[in-house]
Design a protein around this nucleic acid. Structure first.
Lengths: 156, 156
DNA sequence: GTGAGTGCAAATGCTTTGCATGATG
DNA sequence: CATCATGCAAAGCATTTGCACTCAC
């Protein structure tokens, strides 16, 4: 069995290859900057904002504008997901690779903690509901807002 | 059986009473401006942005700042829900009264149409998942992004 | 009367855009 | 070598904040 770290590296590499294919299919250019941004974004350990990603890249010469433009492409390619957490005014993204797909979020409204859970069954239910409306489901957002165990106790 | 319109008026009136109680319980003041904004927000036919609501109120002298401040209170009182639709950069709200509670959204990524569906069963599933993590679920966001029937057909 | 609420305008922060320059196919 | 991508800086919005004035309690 491979180490978890190796798996992740492989996963990111595969995703980058996928991204290259996506760019070519759309007649877009495969540039160093795009690959740089994509790699950093896909290697992020969890949720991140565009500004945070930029912070991790600006020393390498990437501009905010390009970070935003590339995040959009990554989202369209399905490699990154834009998600919505409580209390944040800006957009938050997360890498959306194999092992990370099909999860939902439980966001604590008190401490901001985010708990991830497997959401395949709920997504399946949502898919059926969508079909009943003639709607073709491509992506599911399943999220709960409330209090995590700790805050539940500390707030009484 | 009462007319639908009458029901809605009653519903808004009840919600306003609830809001007053909420304000008093929190030691906040019941002001004309707050009630004005609340009434307009709760009477909105569907989803709206803070700016749209302000547009419907500015002639009556309410300022943007107060609209934002009051929307926050309404959300805390559970009378308005902040929801997340595709493609919008700003926050979108919706009245969240009796008949409208417990629904999810299917958002078409092509035309922007929003289909609402009853989500009680899915919410129940989410609640169980949350409990399993010791999380106390207060609000559920269940949403699908994809293509509506029309766009599915027209895009081939 | 007193403290909270409000309007106003300025500030902030995130995101997008226009344009000249540079890299890719 | 024609185009598309990039960086930079400026513009655009949505949202928040500071402050003097006003109103609910």
């Amino acid at each position: 069995m491979r180490l978890k770290e190796e798996q992740e590296i492989t996963e990111v590499a595969e995703a980058l290859a996928h991204f290259e294919g996506f760019l070519r299919r759309r007649g877009l250019k495969v540039t160093k900057t795009r690959l740089l941004i994509a790699e950093r974004a896909l290697s992020m350990p969890g949720h991140f904002s565009a500004t945070e990603l930029w912070g991790a890249l600006r020393e390498q010469g990437a501009s905010v504008a390009t970070v935003y433009r590339t995040l959009e492409l990554l989202a369209e390619a399905g490699l990154v997901r834009r998600c919505i957490l409580a209390g944040t005014s800006g957009a938050i993204y997360e890498p959306y690779l194999g092992r990370r797909r099909h999860h939902g979020h439980l966001v604590c409204r008190n401490c901001g903690r985010v708990i991830e859970f497997r959401s395949q069954d709920l997504e399946e239910g949502l898919r059926r509901t969508a079909e009943a409306h003639g709607f073709c489901l491509e992506e599911a957002v399943i999220q709960g807002i409330g209090l995590c165990r700790q805050c539940r106790e500390s707030l009484g």
